[in-house]
Structure formats: C-alpha cells, structure tokens
Amino acid sequence: MDATTVLAEINGNIATVGYGLAAIGPAIGVGIVVGKTIEGVARQPELAGRLQVLMWIGIAFTEALAFIGIATYFIFTN
C-alpha cells in the first residue's frame, strides 16, 4: 500500500469541496461590501441613497459568482 493511499485517500465526490469554496468567496465579498457601506453611511448619512446603489451592484456581482458556483452541482457530479 503506497503512501498516497494511506495518507491522502479521498472518497466520494471532490465536487463537494467546490460548494464550500463557492460559499466562502461571496461571504467574504458581501461582508466587505456591506461593511464598507456601513462605514460610508456612518460618515455621510446624506449619501445613503448613492451608497445603497453601489452596495447593491457590488452584491449583485459577488452573488453572481456564488449562484454559478453552486449551480455547477448540476454538471459536475460523477
């Protein structure tokens, strides 16, 4: 029995790791976007409208990758 089998054997579908990655990235991204928006609104409350739109477009781009990443479940199995 060689070292790979003993130490680094992986059973099941490696694609499941991808769901974890697809969740981590957008979580960090949306966290940064929203946190920075809170900072901005706290500094200049009258800019809330503009900052909300920027936040929304930032969230949209971040979550697009998450949707595509999670939807790869449809094609990456087996």
Binding site: I57, A60, F61, A64, F67, I68, A71, T72, F74, I75
Partner: peptide, 24 residues
C-alpha cells in the same frame, strides 16, 4: 436536463447583471 438548467441559470444571472449595470 442538468446541462440546459445550468446554462440557463448562467444566462439569467449574466443578463440580470447586464441590466443592473446599464440601469446604474
């Protein structure tokens, strides 16, 4: 059909991004 489902999700997400950017 998983492939068609995946591709239409990708198309819908991209289209929605395009609309968002254009509107903004």
């Amino acid at each position: 059909d998983p492939t068609v489902l995946f591709l239409s999700i990708v198309a819908g997400v991209l289209a929605s991004l395009v609309v968002d950017v254009l509107v903004v």
